[in-house]
Computed example of a mutant assay.
Amino acid sequence: MKRREILKILFGSLTSFVIPVKAPAEQIFNTTTFINLCNLAISHEYGAIIQYINHAGLINQKKIKNVLLSNMRDEIYHARRITEILIKEGATPTVAMWPPQTGKNLKQLLEEDISGEEAAIRLYQQILDLKESSKYRDDFQFFLNREITHRSRLVELSNAISR
């Protein structure tokens, strides 16, 4: 299953994905798009962390492994900071994880990583478009810029190898 298909499924059921089934009614009604998208971003970051760990373990090329591990460290920071933001907003951060993706060869692994970064870029752009994100604009702009950098590095690596 491709990330886009998973995103459609998850985004369609986002409320149940980030709000516990037994959540009090007031928690459900006070949930905002900002909170929902932040929780979706955390779940993306968790999935990216696991995916990068897995891919770095599968890859023997030191340069590529170092890029993946560097990206992973950024994703850990993003998840931690978004968790802090949600707590400041009185929300409960999710522990749900976006499903990591993998491939059968190096090119496929990098393509999955690029796809994940592109999804993160779109998500952070959506968050930045929300009025509620203005308090945290610097944080989310930083996350967006790092995801763009990750994508660029991965595209460069992918273009340098053949299938």
Rank of each mutant, 00 (worst) to 15 (best):
L106I: 06
S115D: 06
E84K: 04
A160T: 11
K135N: 03
S133M: 08
Q27P: 02
R80P: 02
V95D: 08
A23N: 14
K107W: 06
S152K: 04
R137Q: 03
N145E: 06
V18C: 05
L106S: 06
I121N: 03
F11C: 03
H55V: 08
D129N: 02
N36R: 15
K88S: 15
I161Y: 07
D138V: 03
Q27Y: 06
E45I: 02
A160C: 14
I35F: 15
L40W: 14
Q51Y: 00
T149S: 08
F142K: 14
I127H: 00
L123R: 04
P100W: 01
W98N: 04
L157H: 02
T92P: 06
A56G: 08
M72W: 02
Y46H: 14
F143H: 07
K22Y: 11
V21L: 08
H44D: 13
N71Q: 06
V21T: 12
K2V: 09
F17I: 11
E147C: 11
E117Q: 11
T92A: 10
T15W: 08
Q61T: 12
L86H: 00
L10F: 07
S115H: 03
V155M: 14
I19F: 05
I64D: 03
A120L: 04
I59K: 07
K104I: 15
H150E: 00
E147L: 08
R81K: 14
E147M: 09
I114Q: 13
E112F: 13
L10S: 04
G12D: 01
W98Q: 06
N145G: 08
L40T: 10
N30M: 15
K104Y: 12
N145K: 11
S162Q: 14
L10G: 02
V18Q: 01
E111W: 12
A91P: 03
I28A: 04
A41T: 10
L40D: 05
F11H: 07
I50Y: 00
D74N: 15
P20D: 14
H44W: 11
A23K: 09
I76W: 00
V95A: 10
I50D: 01
K65E: 06
R137E: 00
D139L: 09
N71M: 05
V95C: 06
